[in-house]
Design a binder for these strands. Structure first.
Ligand SMILES: [Mn+2]
Ligand SMILES: [Mn+2]
Ligand SMILES: [Zn+2]
Ligand SMILES: [Zn+2]
Lengths: 140, 140
DNA sequence: ACTTAACTGCAAATAACTTGCATTTAAATA
DNA sequence: TATTTAAATGCAAGTTATTTGCAGTTAAGT
């Protein structure tokens, strides 16, 4: 099911259905947290997909509105699928200062800001909560 | 005046009043926009301050609550003084997708979010608006 | 089957930071 | 004022996430 789903998403986005991309997208579809390239490489067991290709695929996914990119502040990026289809974030993200994990706060919306100066064109907004995740905050 | 101000801030923070740090802090105090290390190096004319020292000073400033750090999304950091004295952001930031410039939206506040799950400890929030700055949006 | 643009892998490059270490210096103290 | 010391500095080298160039492969349309 996840596999068909991935293939279908690729098709709709006009991308080739390659083993690597299907596996990558399936992984992202099943992951509850945004993943970094390293995490993806580690988790993509059994499927060889060069890390450069992972980056290129992730970029294509983001361009197509399939995924969005999260900046965790440690100079790495994490990626997560989002069904909103837009190119930006549609919800806030939590980032753990201790373990670095990111989390999509899917239940929430990014609050609106009182209009910015008209000279600016706002294309996207990002809202980050930083602190300690459940696991890290409960550590002794 | 800016110089005395910088020296005073350093003193209050328990830092040594060195020529380099005074010049750096003075530059940040006078800058209307957050600056990257490279921009700082370029602008610090007449004062030799190694770029490693710039990074180390900026880190010390942030720890002391003198400055805050902004992530522009292009994997660089920018720094700006903030009088709130806190360690996090106290206002949203605008980031230009075209020229990469950042801007402190000092007039605004970062909106509150409806309480997150109690297991999480939220230590700071960051709000970014991304789009085209005044200059870039008016280009033909 | 043929064609072609999309995709991939490999090696090398980039660039923003970080680290180690030896030297200097502001400023506290005697 | 001389002494002391922790903080600050400079330089060289290291780290690492991401990018780029290029040549070879392959999905998918004809
Ligand atoms: Mn998300
Ligand atoms: Mn600011
Ligand atoms: Zn955590
Ligand atoms: Zn701009």
């Amino acid at each position: 099911m996840g596999e068909n789903n991935a293939a279908e998403i690729l098709r709709k986005a006009g991308m080739k259905k390659t083993a690597g991309r299907v596996a990558l997208l399936k992984l992202l579809l099943e992951s509850e947290k945004p993943l970094s390239q390293q995490e993806i490489s580690r988790m993509l067991k059994g499927v060889e997909l060069n890390y450069v290709s992972i980056y290129r695929s992730l970029e294509a996914f983001c361009r197509a509105g399939i995924t969005h990119r999260i900046e965790t502040g440690d100079r790495t990026w994490r990626f997560a699928v989002c069904s909103c289809g837009g190119r930006g974030h549609c919800h806030p993200h939590f980032i753990c200062n201790s373990c670095g994990a990111a989390e999509c706060l899917r239940g929430m919306e990014i609050p609106e800001l009182p209009a910015v100066n008209r000279e600016y064109v706002v294309e996207a907004t990002e809202f980050y909560l930083k602190g300690l995740c459940a696991r890290c905050s409960s550590e002794v």
